[in-house]
């Protein structure tokens, strides 16, 4: 008979964890407004910090349990336990399964020292870079509009001898009689649109074409230019 293998010694440790205790106080509207303001000013302070809610004052003031729970949960707090009321009261609510900290009635009020919360605002959402350029005057002969960052929209004509160069697409609400060069950045997905087609040259993603090779049927009609399989395709806009 072999001896039963010795069981490893069980090591049990005790450790204290820091939790924030939030105790809603009447008037509750004001308290929640103050909490919201605090969440704004110190946005990351509450992130992943365990929170114990003490509902004693709120309950004494007669606040409804369901409303309190809903109001606290919708603020995204990491609530790990409730205190300040009999665990039986939580039966049937969403917090029924939360650990019972068994606080003695006389300790109800507070316990734990007040913390100072440093301000820590959320960084302002980054303003997206401008990706379009609007020109609301005619582009005259000899003028050159170059915008590598994105689309160019022109309200007015682009004259013979003028050029528009865009990183993205080119939109012309007027006649295109000069050069339109699109897709410096966007590549083959860029397009050229105009109210009246009469270009001297169009180019998308480096593929260019001149009036010699396209039909006169598009002249002075609304048209769009696309790059399809490496070939420029000019089509009337319905």
């Amino acid at each position: 008979m072999t001896a039963a293998p010795a069981l490893p010694a069980l090591r049990i440790r005790g450790r204290s964890f820091m939790a924030l205790i939030l105790a809603p106080e009447p008037p509750l509207d004001g308290w929640f407004a103050a909490l919201d303001e605090q969440l704004r000013r110190a946005a990351s302070y509450f992130t992943n910090k365990p929170v114990v809610v003490n509902l004693a004052s709120a309950r004494e003031a007669g606040a409804g349990l369901e409303e309190l729970i809903a109001a606290l949960e919708e603020r995204g707090l990491y609530i790990i336990a409730v205190e300040g009321l009999e665990p039986a009261e939580l039966a049937g609510t969403r917090w029924a399964g939360l650990p019972d900290l068994r606080q003695k009635p006389q300790d109800r009020e507070d316990g734990g020292k007040l913390l100072e919360i440093p301000d820590d605002k959320l960084p302002a959402p980054a303003v997206p870079a401008v990706t379009s350029l609007l020109i609301d005057r005619p582009v005259r002969s000899g003028q050159s509009i170059i915008f590598e960052e994105g689309d160019v929209t022109i309200i007015g004509p682009v004259s013979s001898g003028a050029e528009v160069i865009a990183g993205g697409s080119i939109h012309i609400y007027g006649a295109l009689r000069g050069r339109a060069i699109a897709g410096l950045r966007a590549g083959a997905n860029a397009r050229i649109f105009c109210h009246k087609f009469g270009a001297e040259l169009v180019a998308i993603d480096g593929v260019y074409d001149t009036p010699e090779s396209w039909s006169a049927a598009f002249t002075n009609r609304p048209a769009q230019v696309r790059l399809e399989d490496g070939v420029l395709n000019i089509a009337p806009l319905a």
Binding site: R137, P138, V139, R140, S141, G142, Q143, S159, S160, G161, A162
Partner: peptide
């Protein structure tokens, strides 16, 4: 005529 019109267009751009 086209050449005069194109040159005028250029000048208008410069005036602006």
């Amino acid at each position: 005529e086209v050449s005069s019109v194109r040159d005028s267009d250029r000048i208008i751009g410069m005036l602006d």
